[in-house]
């Protein structure tokens, strides 16, 4: 069993990613860190807790993470939208403030914060751990700044974030990296083995409404919730970011399924990837050095330029009904 830590800003696709991870008999979820991102930290933490309670998996510990990005909100004009949530509820939006599940009654986050727990766990572990951050990289970047030695116990970091030819929050940037560009830069430069699952891949791994119906027929609680979230996403994408009739990406789930079958991602190349932290129009943009212009930089990640839609949907359907 591969030991993993999830780092999430739940979020509908985060929820599906969490379900994939905890349904799979091949992954052991050591803990789940939450972070500000799709919504503020209160929302992402409670959404994660209510999902675990719904699935009857309260034994998996949840650690509440950073409420704000490292530095991107410090000038009031740079990220005035953050933190998201509680302001204007858009019924058609792909996430919504709260996941459409009953509020958690018993499941609460642990007393320790996510950064302290990362440092403790990665300092004490005897076995290397794989990290799967699918939200802004704030928690991990702060832990790395506080104690850089923790990188030695990281097996691999599989990140949902960044984009080569896409932007989903601005024309230039993917949301997670746009939210906390400095954190993304710190993680990219940390020296660990890194795989990036960017928008270029997730926008190839679209799921349709009829496939959501198939998933629902799997009958487990995970299947039913995942199908519901996918349908919500399809409605949201149709309004805000059309990607094709009756279709939606499920970004974060692709990063988790990559751990189970690397074949869900395609066109994966060793690459040097930088992050623009320049406060301008391309703030938070991933700079993917396809032409080797960073002459003195060795590749710092494996970057997935595409994905195999059929494999992804098949594996998603299987994993969700596994138990």
């Amino acid at each position: 069993m591969r030991k993993i830590i999830l780092d999430v800003d739940t979020g509908t696709d985060d929820a599906i990613a969490i379900m994939c991870a905890i349904q799979s008999p091949r992954l052991e979820v050591v803990g789940i860190c939450t972070v500000n991102g799709n919504r503020g930290i209160t929302y992402t933490t409670e959404n994660t807790c209510r999902l675990l309670e719904y699935l009857g998996r309260e034994e998996i510990p949840v650690y509440k993470g950073c409420a704000l990005p490292m530095v991107s909100t410090l000038p009031a004009w740079r990220r005035p939208e953050i933190p998201y949530g509680g302001k204007e509820f858009k019924a058609q939006e792909v996430h919504g403030d709260w996941l459409d599940l009953p509020p958690s009654k018993n499941k609460k986050p642990e007393a320790m914060d996510a950064v302290s727990w990362y440092i403790k766990t990665l300092s004490e572990t005897k076995e290397k751990i794989t990290l799967v951050p699918v939200g802004p990289l704030t928690n991990l970047a702060i832990a790395l700044r506080a104690k850089p030695e923790i990188v030695e116990n990281i097996e691999e970091i599989v990140i949902m974030g960044g984009a080569y030819a896409h932007g989903n929050i601005t024309a230039a940037a993917e949301f997670n990296w746009w939210c906390d560009p400095e954190a993304a830069k710190i993680v990219m430069d940390c020296g660990a083995k890194i795989t990036i699952v960017p928008l270029d891949a997730t926008h190839k791994a679209l799921v349709s409404g009829s496939e959501a119906d198939e998933i629902e027929k799997g009958g487990t609680k995970a299947c039913i919730a995942a199908a519901d979230f996918i349908k919500r996403r399809i409605r949201g994408y149709a309004v805000f970011q059309p990607v094709g009739d009756d279709m939606t990406p499920v970004h974060d789930a692709l990063a988790v399924l990559y751990l189970l079958d690397e074949g869900v991602c395609e066109d994966v190349h060793e690459m040097y990837v930088d992050v623009d932290c320049g406060h301008g129009a391309s703030d938070g943009m991933s700079i993917v050095d396809v032409d080797h212009r960073y002459e003195d930089k060795a590749p710092n990640c494996r970057f997935a330029f595409s994905a195999n839609r059929e494999k992804f949907v098949k594996l998603l359907t299987e994993v969700l009904k596994a138990r």
Partner: peptide, 9 residues
Amino acid sequence: ALAMRADER
């Protein structure tokens, strides 16, 4: 600053 960001409490 790192501590304040990590744990607002």
